[in-house]
Amino acid sequence: MSEPAGSVKCKRLEGKVALVTAATAGIGLATAERLAQEGASVFICSRKQSNVDETVAALRGRGLQVAGCACHVGSAEQRKRLVQQCVQVYGGLDILVSNAAVNPGAGPLSETPPDVIDKILDINIKAAVLLVQEALPHLLKRPGASIVLVSSVTAFNPPEPIAMYAVSKTALLGLTKGLAAELGPQGVRVNCVAPGIVPTKFSAALVQTPELAAQQAGATALKRLGLPAEQAAAVAFLVSPDAAYVTGETLVVSGGMHSRL
């Protein structure tokens, strides 16, 4: 957990319902926590029910409004159940944060096996599109609805050995633009956050030694690695009324790393 619940004073999201995927660790957990601190009722998911139960209990123990269920976002049945349960518990849906991603293999693009490519594209891109489709009928019922896709700074310059993963994150930049243009006239904003290198279990390979961590920090203008709470703050801004005239944009939160295609 990032900060005491009382440390976030603004309540921009009171009365809102937010669904955050892959939200029991790392950036997803920090995002769920921040949105709840700002007054949202938050529904979370993860592949393991035990992780969901532990996270819900911990956040509720701090006075936050959180519920959740297990969901593998690659399963059509489980995506449908996820959205249905969120709406059943809270009565609607205002905010969708698509954070789930996988990186099952590492190495050069020219040597990436077909099964690794399939898994990355299936979860990181296809599941994101289909989750939006599942949530959209509910989002369209709520004024000020918003979607945030979580990409990565690596999307702008895919590096070995995680280039295939990074390419899938590049696709999310285009998906953000496409969805924003399509859904804007219907009142739904769509934006993207591209985190820099944040030490989490997911990014462990990039910072697993002090030398690697120092190398990654040295690539930033601020000369340090990021924090999950800093990514969560960016998401909270994009889904809040403060960003009411922002759609189709990618907010890079990387401490000044290179971020141009």
Rank of each mutant, 00 (worst) to 15 (best):
N191C: 13
G174T: 11
R60K: 14
G63S: 06
A106T: 03
G91A: 01
R79D: 00
P210A: 14
K169S: 09
A204F: 12
G184R: 10
A25Y: 13
R189E: 03
N191R: 10
S2N: 12
L109F: 03
A236P: 05
A166C: 13
G26M: 15
P143T: 03
P161M: 11
V97D: 01
Q84M: 03
L173I: 15
P143S: 09
A145V: 03
S46T: 01
V207I: 15
A214C: 05
F237K: 04
A163I: 12
V246T: 14
H138C: 02
V150H: 02
G105F: 06
I120W: 07
K48M: 02
H258G: 08
K11C: 13
A236G: 09
F237S: 06
Q133W: 05
L19D: 04
V188A: 13
V253S: 15
A70N: 01
Q216P: 05
G61R: 13
A101C: 02
L179I: 01
N124K: 10
N124W: 14
Q88M: 04
A181C: 02
G74E: 10
L130D: 06
N157G: 08
C71A: 07
S98N: 04
P210W: 09
A166H: 06
S203N: 13
A217Q: 03
C86P: 05
N191F: 10
V66I: 10
S50H: 09
P161W: 10
I95W: 01
L35I: 04
A22R: 05
V89Y: 07
V193H: 06
E111Y: 08
V167R: 04
H72F: 02
T250P: 11
V239S: 08
L96A: 02
V193R: 12
N103D: 15
I44N: 00
E54S: 06
S168H: 09
L206P: 07
F237Y: 15
A5L: 02
I162S: 15
G196M: 15
S203F: 06
G218S: 10
V89Q: 11
G39W: 05
G144H: 04
A128F: 05
L251S: 15
L149S: 02
A57N: 11
L225P: 04
R81S: 01
A58Q: 05
Q78L: 00
R189S: 06
Q231F: 13
K80Q: 11
G39H: 11
H72K: 00
L212C: 07
T200C: 13
A5V: 11
A40F: 08
S7M: 09
L206I: 06
Q208E: 12
V83W: 01
K201G: 08
K126I: 13
T55S: 08
G61E: 10
V239Q: 04
E111I: 08
P241R: 05
G92W: 04
A205L: 14
V102S: 01
L136Y: 06
Y165H: 15
V56K: 01
A229Y: 11
E14H: 15
Q78M: 02
P241T: 12
L172N: 14
T170L: 13
T21P: 00
A5W: 04
V116T: 10
E230Y: 05
G61H: 12
G92M: 07
L225K: 04
K80F: 01
S254T: 13
G144K: 09
A214T: 08
A58T: 04
A22M: 03
V42W: 01
C45T: 00
I162G: 08
V73N: 00
A67V: 05
I27L: 15
L251T: 14
